[in-house]
């Protein structure tokens, strides 16, 4: 754990993850989808996790929620939510935490809503389960919530079925399900990926406003750097199950220190600068059933050196800014020059 994480632990951290490891036993071996992640989210802070698909960011989110259902999955390490050790809780205790203190917005509003129940009921059941509300009270509260989600005509939408709503409206319902009980931490896993481009910005703004209004902390997961930039204060860059760089959004966007982060930026296009060419990262991420023992990005890295065969520790790149790359090791640089 870095010094900064420890200082966060002393006061304001809502979520603190230490050495989180999630693995799946498959026929071809044990896949370590999340492999030793340290991460924290302060109160009212908006933190992003960025990485390409398959890097373990969704598994990380589901591990925090303890929603991984795959038989033979193992989660170790520590996940503390406001002082509560989530991985140590019994399942029925965790049931009381989910939805009430930490809740999640999922990627696909088409599949994460139950097709046979009215959307209002799908929000209200959370209120009934956690706040012990009567059905009538929960309905009133749900109506107010639908208005807060900027859904048109809440009085008719509350009785609609998911298939009667548009993708953007459904995603608002999913958001409503998550924030109904005002959790301290909201985890949003690719909340706009399945939506039309026109609705994406709207949905992101809504999430940002709700997080601010309700005083929640946000952990936003995305493969899209611009989504993270629009909403987050700090960002963690994930590669092959590990955090390779973390720091304030402005710092990283100003000049990433880890070659993978730089490559990610190079691989994005922007409408504002259409003439800029984007570069492709050569190769593919390592097989997480047998990852390389040293730096996991080394085989694709343009700056590869001999030391990369050893796993790099996090090096400080600035205040609150770490990168796991030997390039940042000044003593090594010096010794190499000698």
């Amino acid at each position: 754990m870095s010094g900064e994480a420890r200082s966060a632990a002393n006061g304001e951290a809502v979520l603190e993850i230490e050495d989180l490891r999630t693995s799946f036993r498959l026929r071809r071996g044990t896949v370590r989808a999340v492999d030793g992640v340290d991460l924290f989210v302060r109160r009212s802070e908006r933190v992003g996790i960025v990485g390409e698909s398959g890097c373990g960011k969704s598994t990380l989110a589901l591990s925090v929620m303890r929603l991984i259902q795959t038989p033979g999955a193992s989660i170790t390490g520590s996940v503390r939510l406001g002082g509560l050790d989530l991985l140590a809780l019994a399942e029925d205790e965790m049931t009381q935490v989910r939805g009430a203190r930490v809740a999640m917005v999922y990627q696909d509003p088409y599949t994460f809503l139950n097709p046979v129940f009215r959307v209002g009921d799908q929000i209200a059941e959370s209120l009934i389960a956690h706040r012990g509300m009567s059905i009538a009270d929960a309905r009133t509260e749900t109506l107010a919530l639908l208005a807060k989600l900027q859904l048109p005509q809440p009085a008719s939408i509350i009785d609609a079925y998911p298939h009667q709503l548009s993708g953007g409206q459904r995603q608002r319902i999913v958001i409503g399900m998550a924030i109904a009980c005002r959790p301290a931490l909201l985890i949003a896993d690719e909340p706009t990926t399945a939506l039309d481009v026109t609705v994406q910005a709207q949905t992101l703004r809504l999430i940002g406003r709700l997080v601010a209004d309700l005083g929640m902390s946000l952990l936003l997961i995305s493969h899209d750097l611009s989504v993270i930039a629009a909403l987050c204060d700090r960002v963690y860059v994930m590669y092959a199950g590990q955090i390779v760089e973390s720091g304030p959004v402005e710092a990283l966007y100003g000049g990433a220190r880890h070659p993978y982060t730089s490559a990610l930026f190079g691989a994005t296009t922007t409408l504002l600068d259409p003439k800029r060419e984007f570069t492709v990262i050569p190769g593919a991420p390592p097989d997480l059933a047998s990852p390389p023992s040293g730096c996991r990005f080394a085989v694709r890295c343009p700056h590869r050196m001999d030391r990369c065969a050893q796993p790099p520790p996090p090096f400080a790149a600035g205040p609150g800014w770490d990168a796991r790359c030997w390039l940042l090791d000044e003593t090594a640089d010096a010794s190499a020059r000698r």
Binding site: R98, G99, F117
Partner: peptide, 23 residues
């Protein structure tokens, strides 16, 4: 997926199984 979100809401497994899945 909607079973994951039902569990994510903190619904007891009895409700997840007999209401959300069984229906």
């Amino acid at each position: 997926d909607f079973i994951v979100s039902a569990r994510g809401k903190g619904l007891p497994s009895r409700i997840v199984v007999y209401r959300h899945a069984l229906r």
